[in-house]
Each structure stands twice: as C-alpha cells, then as structure tokens.
Nucleic acid binder design. Structure first.
Lengths: 144, 144
DNA sequence: ATATGTGCAAATGCTTTGCAACGCC
DNA sequence: GGCGTTGCAAAGCATTTGCACATAT
C-alpha cells in the first residue's frame, strides 16, 4: 500500500461517507452506484491492505462474511451492531480485557487475542417501540 | 432430526470422542479414517441440525469456517481456543453478560446476543516454555 | 524505467441444494 | 408405505489469485 491510485482514494472516500459496517461487495456496489469504476478484486485487495494498516475495523458476521468500516477509535474496542441495518455503536470494556488476559494466563495460553461483538436490533428495527435518546455512534464505556 | 440413522449416530459418536473444536471437513475426514462411510453433505446437514437442537457448540473461526464440538456446559459460556490445535477451555463470564445487556439497553438495542471467543497458543504450541499445572478443559469462571 | 496496482476471469474453499435412491418408523 | 435421510454432483458465495496491462513515482 504505497501508491496513491484513483481506485484506492475512491475506496477510502466511500468508506469515509459510511457510518456502518459494510461487506466488500456492498462497498463495491455502492461505488458502482456512485459512478466509480473499480474492480471487485481491487476493492478486496484494498480493504485487506487498509485493515492490515489499521485504518479499518473488520468484523466477521455470523455467516463468516467480513464487514468493514473506517476506524473511529484508536484503541481496542468492541461493537454493538444492528443485525438489520448495520448501525454500530463502539464501546470499550477495559475490565474485560484484563479478565481475558487473566484467564488465558491461568491456562498457559500465550499470544492471546479476542473477539467480542454484540448483535441486536437497533431502535429503528426493533419489533418493540422503545423510547430512548442516545442514538449516536460515540464511543462508550462498559463497566466490565 | 427425527430419525435415528447409522450416519447420525456415527457423527454423534465421533463428536463425543472429540474434545476440541473441529470443522465439518475435519470431522468428515476423521470418520473416513475410522472406517465410517458418510457423505460430506450429510455431515454438514447433521452438524447444522445438532447445533440447531442445542446439542453442539458452534464457533466461527477468523476465516469464516465453522467449528463444532459437543456441548460440555448447558449455560451460556465462552471459549479459549488454541489457534494451532483447537484445544479448548470453556469459561463463564456472568459479569460480562450483564455489562453487555446494560450497554445494549442504553442504546435501545433489543434481541441482543453476543459472541466472545479468545484465541491464543496453548502450552504445547506456545513459542515460549511456560510451566503450568492446570491443563484440563473443566469449566472455569472469570470475574468479568 | 520500474516496481506497484489494477482488471478480469479462473480458481479456491466452505457450505448448500436438487434430486433420485434409501431405509427408519 | 411414506416421509425423513442420504449421497452425489452441481450450484452458490465470498474471497483469492494468475497474469497481462496500466500507472504512480
């Protein structure tokens, strides 16, 4: 990832206009709609490169599909994602990180890494009619 | 899942002799080695049926491959899995469950569900030579 | 100039499915 | 005997890769 190409910029551009997690194919589709002509393989290659470079969050959906979105937060964080629309809330759980390390160490595991993702239905897609106020994507902190 | 067939029994049998998470293909392979003749599609179909019936734990590896193993624990629990050999330790994290519910509720999400898996290298596959005692798969409890 | 990046199409790997044969109940 | 089950091969998907061409630096 060392050169600036029209395609790469377009991909980054598209991602920057996107709040929620999207699959490579959705992103490619979106670009086509926007009039950008970029090969699907190129989208895949760049998403990979960008996430390797730490500029994207990647999360693997239940069915194994990879979803991407631009990082909002630098540190290690987790996501609360709407199963319907992909709307995402980031949150931190420092106590969890510690607990995980402790458990891993107890069992002699090293090089540990963990994934924690929470899936649910956001206000707009919930069957019930919850009233609530906080509906932005700002980072939050859990007490776990 | 209403009839008992030779194939289904063989699959359950194979799973019961297996401590760690295995992919459908690995299970199929194992059965072939054991002299069982069962179609790959049948293995997939039964693994799905069994996990639907709550008799198997399923976890999706980083690359999207589904891994199965028979349930040890009834309740909701998580796994510490060796990236190399699949060796698995189950653990509970009740405080985490609560924290997740709280966060979800705060943001108006409903029908929440979460996945937490910890990957690492077990004692036998760690580059370093950790000394340790606890190396079984008994359930454990985290304070998070 | 030349190492990188791109596009396309073919290949991969896991998983699912259509359909005829099969075998529990 | 009927309906769930199986096997096989084909189809599906998301993703990766080989290779010739294009292009940023």
């Amino acid at each position: 990832m060392q050169r600036n190409t029209r395609q790469r910029s377009a991909i980054v551009e598209t991602l920057s206009r996107q709040d929620d997690f999207r699959s490579a194919q959705q992103i490619h589709e979106q670009m086509k709609v926007d009039g950008e002509t970029v090969g699907l393989a190129t989208v895949y290659r760049n998403l990979q490169a960008l996430s390797r470079a730490g500029r994207l969050d990647v999360l693997v959906a239940g069915d194994g599909e990879a979803l991407y979105r631009q990082c909002e937060d630098d540190g290690h964080h987790h996501h609360l994602v709407c199963r319907e629309c992909g709307r995402t809330v980031e949150f931190l759980a420092p106590k969890l990180e510690n607990a995980m390390s402790a458990i891993a160490q107890e069992h002699g595991f090293t090089d540990v890494d963990h994934t924690l993702e929470v899936f649910g239905l956001c206000t707009e897609h919930s069957g019930t009619e919850h009233a609530q106020t906080d509906r932005d994507d700002r980072s939050d902190e859990a007490d776990a």
